[in-house]
Design a protein around this nucleic acid. Sequence first.
DNA 1: ACGACAATTTGCAACATGCAATTTGCAAAA
DNA 2: TTTTGCAAATTGCATGTTGCAAATTGTCGT
Lengths: 222, 222
Amino acid sequence: MAETEFPRPIVTVDIVLLTLREERLHVALLPRAAEPFANMAALIGGYVHTDEDADAGAAVKRILKAKAGLNGIFFEQLKTFASASRDPRDWSVSITYFALVSQDVLDEAGVTLELRPAEAPGELPFDHADIIKAALERLRGKGAYSTIPARLLPEVFTMSELQAIYETVMGEKLDQSAFRRKINDLNILEEVEGEKRQTERARRPTTLYRLKAPLAVFDRRI
Amino acid sequence: MAETEFPRPIVTVDIVLLTLREERLHVALLPRAAEPFANMAALIGGYVHTDEDADAGAAVKRILKAKAGLNGIFFEQLKTFASASRDPRDWSVSITYFALVSQDVLDEAGVTLELRPAEAPGELPFDHADIIKAALERLRGKGAYSTIPARLLPEVFTMSELQAIYETVMGEKLDQSAFRRKINDLNILEEVEGEKRQTERARRPTTLYRLKAPLAVFDRRI
DNA sequence: ACGACAATTTGCAACATGCAATTTGCAAAA
DNA sequence: TTTTGCAAATTGCATGTTGCAAATTGTCGT
């Protein structure tokens, strides 16, 4: 930093908000309000407001609340995309985040988000398709070694639901007995007394669980 | 992005350049040329030059070459630090990178870098201490599942040297036979015919290896 | 009491890992 | 020429993990 200051780039945050819908990962999009790409569906995002955001995470919270009606959901910094070419207006920086939310929380948000399959989101402005790709890679990579995928489920869930989430995220079938053994050995869940949910047909009642800690990272693959 | 544009923050890149020295990880620092914190040892970094850098990675390459005399070394994006408080001048964004270099390459660079123990780098400007902490965490985390630590070695190395690097990075002793078995099973190295290096005392000659690919990520811990 | 069904557990072979002991290749010393 | 020291490299084995298949359990409608 020896030189005098240089022209400053545009700085925004963009959020890859993922949820589960019909057993597949979907990404939440909003129509852009302004040029460029006005009206086109795009990642949830916006300018960093230097006057009101203490840091980038605060900008994410503000934007999630204002544009998607969401509070207190899980998000994590993903990667920063910064180049001369990604925005037609100017050299621009997008600090990107990925966020996971359960379908029921999303339904209560009261904002109409467009959900598209995360693997094939269709045409998107800027480098948003690359950003989504990076989010999926991260989810797959880190998902196998952490409880991050559980953030796609409601707070209380069954072992089978948890296994299904991991299978979706990792894209492979897992052995049921081995999965249960590992989850139990990891000691990351606690039983919930809760009322067993309604089932169509009669069957042995399921144990309900919740995460002991918001985020646990382990040593080996689930 | 519905609003008109907002005041733009400062955007810089900062690099945590790590190397091995006396069996320990050290971070390379340079005295700051300008205020704030003029003359204080700091991470290698600088403004993004919107007129000449195509993207953030290009800024990193330019700065590594100009300020540290280094070309073609391994680096990877770490995390972006962005807040109102990290720089006394203004709201600022630092896109940070971590880079690994072998001691011999560093010695040939011809630039005087200050090396301090990465675990205890002493007083540093801005949030550079936090950035170094993040780099070490990343190295430890990702190091156990990839060939990243090998970037701290010269291109050709012995199995024992490789094991020592992993032990340093992960902070624990590894079993020799298990280590060799795993590395062999992973099939990430190729033998090099090379002349065996001089040793002080007589002993069985070591096989020399090099990485087959620049970066391999695997599924389980080494 | 029986049947159907998913939840949950068990048994076991195949594989992976940690630890200790053994074997190997070289060159200086005897 | 043989012996010896040293680290490289391999081997054997007890123990822990994992995948696959089979068996057991709890509910509720019939």
